[in-house]
Design a protein around this nucleic acid. Structure first.
Lengths: 77, 77
DNA sequence: GGCGATTTGTGCGTATGTATC
DNA sequence: CGATACATACGCACAAATCGC
């Protein structure tokens, strides 16, 4: 899934992966997106990289954050 | 303020700018110096360059770092 | 109300690779 | 070749919010 040797940045690979899961319905609206800690242990990446990926999802309109709880899949408008 | 075309290195320009603000009192002792992230968005420079400027301020005795919090204006001895 | 666990946010330090001058 | 600059990535630390006990 995640290839450290790819020219594509790790955070971008993670973002793409999650976006695919959202589009396919694997991750439904208002369901939690994998937390930074989870992405770290699942993909062996740094927390900073995981946080960056999560923020990208929010910036790109795929998810929303609830302080102290987590990040969730955004509902279609 | 910051001129990319100047022969003076960007990190040096940033250092000079902040030193001026410290000397003029605009940035008081024990007050936070602009963070690397802030310098990035305000001057359109890279994080590495911003970090270098901050480190220079510390090296030159104008500021001190508090781990996990930030960089602050050094008090006069 | 307190305490600990979880999660996101923020901050600096450091290293590596690439590109430009 | 060396200095400068940018992008990516990892590590560690502190803060605030939420929740369960």
């Amino acid at each position: 899934m995640i290839d450290p040797d790819s020219p594509v940045p790790l955070y971008r690979q993670v973002v793409n992966l999650i976006q695919e899961q959202i589009k396919s319905g694997e991750l439904a609206p208002d369901r939690p997106v994998p937390s930074a800690a989870r992405l770290v242990q699942e993909h062996g990446i740094a927390r900073g990289t995981a946080l960056k990926a999560i923020r990208m999802l929010v910036d790109e309109g795929f998810a929303y954050v609830v302080a102290g709880k987590g990040t969730y899949v955004k509902r279609k408008d």
